[in-house]
Design a protein around this nucleic acid. Structure first.
Lengths: 237, 237
DNA sequence: ACCTGAACACCGTTCAAGT
DNA sequence: ACCTGAACACCGTTCAAGT
């Protein structure tokens, strides 16, 4: 909660003046266009045709701006359309998480912005509501429902963060990711078989190019595990 | 692979001179003492009683230093002692992942350093070897083994990253995390029940203080899901 | 109420020059 | 082979001052 609010400047509206919403919108634009590393207070100020120190009237510091951004980032995600009340909660959650991943991949650096932020903003709460609905309809208890929400969303966020971060300094400096993966595979295949028997044995599978399949693998294990949990609970009652 | 190596300065050893190992050791020290945000090239140079530009003889840029750090960070992790050949692979993997989490929590900012880096350094490979061994002994196929390794380690890393990051700008600025959690619970409890029925219903469970239980919840679902997968595969053969 | 200019204390990195 | 000094192009943030 910022100490000052700019929204009610309409009370006497003498100056057009910038609103907090305009600031976050500009930040979102800059993020999408130039990436998180380029999102400095000075650049953002430029985007708003303003001087950098002026931003501190709307926001206490950059961290608070990023908190705002983290929630604003989720504005266009549509999970509601995936709600199905046919009892197939596994498929419902699966599709929601796949959509969540796709969405995050479409928003530049969203994984890094979201990492480790619990903002409870309006958009986050809306999506939590939808996901929690699916979990509760499946029949989970309250604590299980809450924990399941975190397990699922955190899996997706962690995966996307990993997936979108430069895998190494090489890639950050411009090496083609596919080339990097191939080099990694090569590297793994030629390790000492005495020292790393297991790594060598599955080497080529560790650096698989089909990253979506890897995402689905973990997601499906998680969902299977949730089903087991649900069956166990039902068996008791 | 850095373009220059300093290790073989022993070939004629006229100067004591700094080695690459000394650089990463100093970086590790600085990280543990002052945190990642304080780990600048200038600070690190200070730690080595050297000028900042000198570091660029050992390392191409800061990103490469962080890659080195990411592997060095894993040096003291001991998973070998958790190997048990009694067939209880679920317990084996569970204990390994719990140990991994505890270890990461003990190393300052390790989650942030590790996030999104696939370095294939010697320490990483050693731990991968141990974990892959447990998964393979359980009877998983090669691709499943590789994917399982990622699902498990990524879950742990993602969880720890979330767990150790400041939850919001408030906490970053000094608000007590417990206080923040309580405020969050309070906030959730007073939301509009029409707009957020599910969030309100499980509200108090969403901000549970027992974060370890939440970690175990997701971990156990993942492990249960892996068991299901294994049983399905065995049923086919 | 909103915005600016000037300033402080930093960054990562390059590059010519030293030994 | 290893290290430095000086410099470039940036940062986030504070603060007194303007309108």
């Amino acid at each position: 909660m910022p100490a000052q609010r700019a929204a009610n400047s309409a009370s006497r509206q003498p100056r057009p003046s910038i609103t907090l919403e305009a600031v976050t919108a500009a930040a979102l634009r800059t993020l999408q266009r130039d990436g998180l590393d380029s999102l400095s207070m000075r650049r953002l100020a430029d985007e708003l045709s303003i001087q950098a120190p002026s931003l501190y009237w709307y926001v206490r510091n950059k961290d608070e701006l990023l908190d705002l951004l983290a929630d604003a980032l989720l504005a266009d995600l549509r999970l509601d359309t995936l709600v199905r009340d046919d009892g197939d909660w596994r498929r419902e959650l699966r599709e929601m998480m796949q959509e969540y991943r796709k969405y995050l991949l479409s928003k530049r650096d969203s994984g890094r912005v979201l990492a480790g932020r619990l903002q409870l903003g309006p958009h986050f709460l809306h999506h939590a509501e939808v996901i929690l609905g699916a979990v509760r309809r499946a029949g989970f208890g309250d604590q299980d429902t809450a924990d399941s929400l975190y397990s699922l969303t955190q899996y997706v966020q962690g995966f996307v963060l990993h997936e979108t971060s430069p895998l190494s300094a090489d890639v950050a400096r411009g090496t083609d990711p596919m080339e990097f993966l191939e080099a990694a595979r090569d590297r793994l295949a030629h390790l000492s078989e005495e020292e790393y028997p297991n790594v060598v044995a599955v080497g080529s599978r560790l650096a698989r190019p089909d990253i979506e399949a890897r995402f689905n693998y973990g997601l499906d294990r998680l969902l299977d595990g949730l089903r087991v949990r649900l069956e166990e609970a039902n068996a008791l009652s």
